[in-house]
């Protein structure tokens, strides 16, 4: 039987196509206006390579370090009832809704040499402002809600009875967490980790306030655009997008491999 498309479906398809066009058109335009030669030349610049590497490893480090506390917090949010839980949930979502330049200003006060954290850092010879550690903190600040929310959903999907069963089988609560709750919520946690990492890599507003130098790639793109114009900013942008896409495709593939292996 022939599938008939109703008028409402047709309208929705047209509207959806407009959204897709809205996303793809600027990117396509940028790619079409950049020759492979320009991208190759840009890739040879050590400033560009260093900034891409800095962006990747600061975001990765921020994701990894903050996940140590974010995942247990997500577990608490999924499992426990406590006073002002809604307020806590709202606080977690704050970094998503506040302007990121404002978040940068707030963070600057938090990590500057005059702050308590800054003083602790100074005591061990670490100045967060203008330092990769500061960049990692700024990236984590704006991207941590993605990890917490995804992990919380993952833990909420783990049947409580499985955790109870593990307890009755002699496991300690820690062992239950690491051998039952975490593995069963892993798909969501991994997805959250990838999202947090990706969001951290693309952060500009908060990072530029905390650390203009050393330059992460989004700041470098902005600087090249300001100093030399659109033509000079495009190749870096294209290269960064290509590397980011390649990275996320690999991460997603690895995540899929890992979770399907667990499901076997």
């Amino acid at each position: 039987m022939k599938n008939r498309i109703s008028s409402i479906q047709l309208v929705f398809v047209m509207l959806g196509s407009l959204v897709l066009l809205f996303i793809l058109a600027p990117l396509t335009g940028m790619f079409l206006n950049t020759t492979p030669g320009q991208v190759f030349e840009t890739a040879r610049e050590s400033e560009v390579r260093n900034s891409i590497w800095l962006t990747i490893y600061t975001s990765f480090a921020g994701t990894l370090i903050f996940s140590l506390a974010a995942i247990p917090l997500a577990y608490l949010l999924a499992r426990k009832k406590f006073p002002m839980k809604k307020l806590v949930t709202g606080i977690i979502d704050l970094p998503v809704v506040i302007p990121h330049s404002a978040a940068g200003i707030a963070l600057l006060g938090f990590v500057s040499r005059e702050s308590a954290l800054g003083k602790i850092g100074s005591a061990v010879g670490l100045n967060f402002v203008g330092h990769p550690a500061g960049i990692a903190i700024a990236m984590a600040f704006v991207s941590i809600p993605y990890l917490i929310n995804a992990s919380r959903d993952g833990f909420a999907g783990v049947p409580v009875r499985l955790e109870k069963a593990a307890l009755t089988l002699g496991a300690s609560p820690y062992r239950v967490f690491f051998t039952v709750s975490m593995p069963l919520a892993w798909r969501n946690i991994l997805s959250g980790l990838i999202l947090m990492f990706a969001r951290g890599m693309s952060e500009f507003g908060a990072v530029i306030v905390v650390a203009y130098h050393p330059m992460i790639t989004p700041v470098l793109i902005y600087e090249r655009f300001g100093a030399f114009g659109l033509k000079y900013a495009r190749p870096v942008s294209v290269l960064f997008i290509l590397i980011s896409l390649a990275l996320f495709i690999v991460l997603r593939w690895l995540a899929k491999e890992k979770t399907s292996e667990m499901a076997k």
Binding site: R161, L162, L167, T168
Partner: peptide, 16 residues
């Protein structure tokens, strides 16, 4: 719980 020497089999099995 883990020190009680009591085994519980759940209605829905709760096998991992």
């Amino acid at each position: 719980i883990q020190h009680r020497k009591i085994g519980l089999v759940f209605q829905d099995h709760a096998v991992f």
